[in-house]
Design a protein around this nucleic acid. Structure first.
Lengths: 181, 181
DNA sequence: CACAGATCGTTTCAAGTGAAACAAATAGCG
DNA sequence: CGCTATTTGTTTCACTTGAAACGATCTGTG
C-alpha cells in the first residue's frame, strides 16, 4: 500500500521545498533577490565572466528563467552584460562592484544557514548522506535515459518518430517491439 | 567558498524536481492526472472520506491548490463531494468507483517506479537514508520555529505585530531589542 | 561564397501558483 | 440568545513558470 509519508518522491519534494523557502528568507526580504537570481549570483561567484548558456548548464534552470534573472540583476546594477567580441551571440556576464559586494554579503548567510541545517548530522553522517545523494542522482540519470529510449518508441509526443518506428515495425524490423512492451 | 554542486539546498531541489518529473511521466500522459491531483488521490487511497482541510494537512499543499485539484477530479468523475451532515462547511471527499479504479492502477506504477529508483541503494542504505531524512526534517522544523520567533520580532511582513512591538520598545520594554538585532 | 541549419538569448503565451479577499457556516464569549 | 471571531473551501489577482516561437548570429557544407 502506498503510504505517502514514506513515499520517497513525496518526502524529497516536501523537504526540498521547505529548505528552499527557509533559505530564501535569508536573502529575499533583506536584499530583494529571488531564488533564480540568487542561483545566478552563486554561479558567478565562483567563475566569471560567463555566458547565459554557461549559467543554464551550471544551474539546471531553463534558459528563459536564466534570461529573466539576468535581466533583473543587470537592471538593478549588479551585473554587467557585454557582448562577446568573438561571438556576438554570446554575452559576457560579470559582477559590477555592487554585485560583488552583494555576493560577499549573501554567500556567508547561505553557507551559515547550511551549516546550521547540517548540524543535525555528524560529519560521518553528512558524508554518508551526500554519498547516497550521489548514488540516487546517478540512478535517476540512468532511469531518465532508459525512459528516453522507451519514449521514442512509445511516442506519445513525437508523432514523426513514432510513425517511422511503426513503419519499421510493419516492415518486419520488429526487434524493438519487445523493448517497447 | 560556495560551491553550488555541493550546496545541499540546491542539490535537494534539483533532485526532488527531477524525481517528481520522472515519476509524473508514469501517470500524466497515461491518465491525464496532474501532480497535485495525484497527491490528492494518493492521500485518499489510504483514508476515506476526508475533508479538503484534511488533505491540505496531509499533502503539505496550500488550500487553493487542493481546491483546484479536487475540483478537477470531481469534474472528471473520480471523486464524490458531499457536504458533511454535522458541519456544512466540511466536505466529504471520497472515490467514486472510477476513482478507486484509477487509484488501483496508478498506485502500483508509482510504487514500482520508487522500487526501481531505490534499487540504487542496498536495504541498509535505504534505511540509513530515510533515517537521515527524518533527522533533517526535524532539524528544519526546529529552525523554522526559531525563525518564526525572530520573524515576529523583526516583522517585515506583519505590520500589526511590528507596530505593537515597536510601541513596547518605545515604552521602554526593550528586552527584545537585543534579540531583534 | 551562399545558404541551410545550428546556437544563443529574448519574448510570447497559456497554464500553474500562492497570498489574500471572500462567502458561508460554525463556535465561542459576554 | 446575539454578535464577534474563527474555520472551511472557493475565487481573484498578480506573479512565475516553461514550452515554443522568434530574431540575430554563427557554422558547416557543397
Amino acid at each position: 500500500m502506498l503510504e505517502l509519508d514514506s513515499f520517497l518522491p513525496y518526502r524529497l519534494n516536501v523537504l526540498a521545498k521547505r529548505v528552499s523557502r527557509q533559505l530564501a528568507r535569508q536573502y529575499q526580504d533583506r536584499f530583494g533577490i529571488s531564488i533564480p537570481e540568487w542561483r545566478v549570483i552563486a554561479i558567478l561567484g565562483r567563475e566569471q565572466p560567463l555566458s547565459s548558456n554557461d549559467i543554464v548548464e551550471r544551474s539546471q534552470m531553463d534558459k528563459a528563467k536564466v534570461s529573466r534573472a539576468v535581466a533583473g540583476l543587470v537592471e538593478r546594477g549588479y551585473l554587467s552584460r557585454q557582448v562577446h567580441p568573438d561571438d556576438q551571440r554570446l554575452l559576457r556576464l560579470a559582477f559590477t562592484a555592487e554585485g560583488r559586494a552583494l555576493y560577499d554579503r549573501i554567500a556567508p548567510l547561505a553557507l551559515d544557514w547550511e551549516r546550521r541545517f547540517l548540524a543535525a548530522l555528524t560529519p560521518t553522517e553528512r558524508a554518508a548522506f551526500t554519498g547516497l545523494l550521489d548514488r540516487l542522482e546517478a540512478r535517476l540519470a540512468a532511469m531518465a535515459s532508459e525512459d528516453e529510449t522507451a519514449y521514442l518508441l512509445s511516442g506519445e509526443a513525437n508523432a514523426e518518430r513514432l510513425r517511422k518506428a511503426a513503419a519499421d515495425m510493419d516492415a518486419g524490423k520488429g526487434i524493438l517491439r519487445d523493448i517497447k512492451d
